[in-house]
Amino acid sequence: MPFNPDDIVYWRYGPFRLNATLAYTWLVMALLVVGSWLATRRLEPTLRPGPWQNFLEALVEVIRRQIREVTRQDPDRYLWFVGTLFLFIALADLLAPVPGYHPPTASLSTTTALALCVFVAVPWFGIREVGLKNYLRQYLEPHPLMLPFNVIGEFSRTLALAVRLYGNLMSGAVIGAVLITLVPFFFPVVMQLLGLLTGFIQAYIFAVLALVYIASASAAQRERLARLRSEESS
């Protein structure tokens, strides 16, 4: 089985353990934040942006375009959440070939945490879209008797997402581990290259799946709300 970065503990205080997952998560976070800060420190709306600014603008614009294509909505509402998911997973996976680095995404704890974030984000964006009262009312639709089924539906959908995320993230690691046991001598280099690709693909899939769930939920909320309002007005 693949190596679990949760098991590498650098420092321990009572029940709290500073393991490799957390340490490398912080490293990735630091890289992302410092890189962003350095690049956007002196932003100017000139017609000739510098290379870093250009790169980041292109990156953000690609993410926004993806969000717009998938949701058909204003991308800036979901940008901070979906974009961060994508950037974090992508960078965590891209650093994998660095010696001594353990990708935090290889830990089931990380994928679970991200899945839980999406799990919370789906109702959260829905509530932001239509308001808490309207959002809670959907569980009583079309009849209060349907409440348990609605709740089970919501949970099962989010659970399915979490499992799917985990599956996506784990699959690459599992395939790599299996192949390394089969061809131990020259295969790791090829696997590293493949790992870059799969890491990127995983990041993309995770972000797009999260986006689809959030957007479909909030779009459904909005449609429902619009229907309700039209019924009320008529």
């Binding site: 679990n4 949760d6 997952t21 998560t25 679970t112 974030c117």
Partner: peptide, 15 residues
């Protein structure tokens, strides 16, 4: 493979 819930919580906060 185990899920360390403390790490999960920390990762959520990190994210």
């Amino acid at each position: 493979m185990q899920v360390d819930w403390l790490t999960v919580a920390a990762q959520i906060v990190n994210f």
